[in-house]
Design a protein around this nucleic acid. Structure first.
Lengths: 219, 219
DNA sequence: GTGTATATCTCGGGG
DNA sequence: CCCCGAGGTATACAC
């Protein structure tokens, strides 16, 4: 990784046009070639950047970074305050827990959390516009499509509604109803869901995990 | 801005739980207090981070960053390879051109681009689920809701459809139709729009800007 | 490659 | 503060 502190102006031309007036900034060049220009604030997002793969040409006080999509980043430096490189090596990567995929796993392991007597037919049940998170049958044997979210918002309801439209075309599933399952279901999402005849349920992640742990201990 | 290169492991607990095994990384601390841990690849996004405002406590080989939302980032360093600080000063900020807001401005300045004889009623016309980008009247005086996007995709059609549902409840607007206006309208979006009776139009950004420039020259 | 969904999204605006 | 919408979203994954 190369770290350059320089007084510079920057121009980006590609998906939009953007210009940074002259100021002192940090320019980070990673091993994969990506370039990021950071100010001393504004969370982790750089002011400007160019992802890999790209080509970096260092000219006289000007760096030009281009890629195959026709994007171009031009850094014009009036003064370079420091220019250091450091070898970091390959990173073992981030281990996550508590994202939607995990929530879906926990639910799939015991869909009776959603309703007494329910059973799982299939995870990631395919439709022609994308996969439904969980396809279940309720105690009466009726099909239920479940959309799992960390946060239940309007777009989750829309997504489920689109799937329901498709699933309803399959005679073996009809009639099919939908349930939005999330740790939190926002008020707007509740309103929209109810107005479309879609159910919703809030999940307790820690309890789900506790249930799983208890069962793993049991067997 | 402070830049520390260290061999460290990292744990984050908050919106999810995440762990980074021991490896050498760059730790960036900005003037506003935000902390980001970068590997030597993976675009500009850090592996782990903590936004401002927060509290950073430096202990013996361990940094602990906490905030009021109950999030906690713990960095355990086994070796510090370098630790430098640099004064960057306040950044003048990014100037953008070519984003949706600008597209909407250009369209609002001349809605006849969308249809002969159209006139603009209001920009950001409010509904109870959000504002419609442009509300117009066509040559016959019928209401038209226009959703402006840089790229017209399925979610833009859904968004406009939701607005149309609401607008149709207003007798003074009924009947109201919708048009998705974008520089590019994706095939799926076209299909979905047409199946819902929503129109779509592709815009030439440069031409729009040229028209505006020409008019500004004229008057 | 396009298409679809997720994200500790980030960021900004409005109430 | 939350809610909502845009983003050069980025990123992963399926087709």
């Amino acid at each position: 990784m190369r770290l350059v502190v320089a007084t510079c102006s920057v121009d980006y031309q590609g998906r939009l046009q953007a210009h940074l007036p002259l100021a002192t900034r940090l320019i980070m060049v990673k091993a994969d070639g990506c370039v990021a220009i950071h100010a001393d604030g504004g969370a982790y997002k750089p002011l400007n950047w160019m992802n890999a793969p790209n080509r970096l040409v260092e000219g006289d006080g000007t760096w030009t970074v281009t890629n195959d999509k026709g994007e171009r980043l031009t850094i014009t430096m009036t003064e370079v305050h420091s220019d250091t490189s450091v070898e970091l090596g390959r990173d073992p990567g981030l281990e996550k827990d508590g994202v939607e995929a995990h929530l879906q796993e926990l639910l799939a392991a015991d869909v009776t959390v959603l309703g007494r007597g329910w059973r799982l037919v299939r995870r990631e049940h395919p439709t022609d516009i994308g996969p439904v998170d969980l396809l279940c049958r309720d105690a009466e044997g009726a099909a239920v499509a479940v959309e799992v979210k960390r946060r239940g918002e309007i777009d989750g309801v829309e997504q489920l509604a689109r799937y329901l439209e498709r699933l309803a075309l399959d005679p073996s599933l009809r009639p099919v109803r939908g349930v939005l399952a999330a740790q939190v279901v926002k008020p707007q999402a509740r309103v929209l869901a109810e107005s479309r005849g879609i159910g919703w349920v809030e999940l307790d992640y820690d309890a789900l995990r506790g249930v799983e742990r208890a069962e793993m201990t049991l067997f």
